[in-house]
Design a protein around this nucleic acid. Sequence first.
DNA 1: GAGCCGTGGTT
DNA 2: TAACCAAGGCT
Length: 288
Amino acid sequence: MPDLATPLIAWYRESARDLPWRREGFGAWGVLVSELMLQQTPVARVVPHLEAWLERWPTPAALATDAPADAVRQWANLGYPRRALWLHRAAVEIRDRHAGIVPRDVDALLALTGIGDYTARAVAVFAYGDRHPVVDTNTRRVLARSVDGRSQPGPPSKRDLAAMEAILPADAEAAAIVNAAAMELGAVVCTARAPACDSCPIADRCAWRAAGYPDTGDERRRRARYEGSDRQARGAVLKVLRDAALHAVPLDDLIADWPDPRQRDRAIDSLIADGLAEAWGGMLRLPR
DNA sequence: GAGCCGTGGTT
DNA sequence: TAACCAAGGCT
């Protein structure tokens, strides 16, 4: 297999974006918060929210002291509000089980709420400098193209970690850069739709390019439309709860004009089931 | 493993 | 405009 690490490292040093969590000494808590926010939310929307979050809660213990409701409110419109809940739970777990220090061990990280294969290794590598493969959706696309000669990666699997491991240098610091560089390349050059192969540092050794850019994309399942969905109803309810000045809203007033009353009730029930809301004397509020 | 879970920008 | 997409994780 051609050497991908060397050109990736050189390219990353030259042209990586200057992002907050890449600053020297950003800290493991900052990295952890950033990674949670970046789960399915674009970088540009995360940056301002991240800075506000860390200003309010500079440590896991600080967040753990406040109520989940505060986390959900601060999360604002970042999307997937359960991540705010997960982050709060993780903060409590870090305070109670790790003396307030974000763990370094991958298995300990994996045991935290909301932290999976990607985020655990991202923290261990980018915050602590340990040597692990870090694989996100960008990396999977870069590897699918440059190594496998395919236009799109297959479904995520445990094999992804081995595929990334195969291109990592032995040195931990260099390996961390290659991990970051693969993600960065997928984010800004080797993009899903219109890859900028002309400015790609590994174009000369890319299997997909060598094969003539075959379209190997398997038909993906189309996602249900958002308009009129349960998700939209949940989002509307939660927005009302976040914005409520008195932090509780009479159930009867809650998106009372929603077109589908049964969907409205379903949204409220599911939010309660998820721990994102709680009934309180005929009212609904964020979790205390 | 498929389905589910928000939000807003881009094409 | 409707569809697609963006540093995943959980059930």
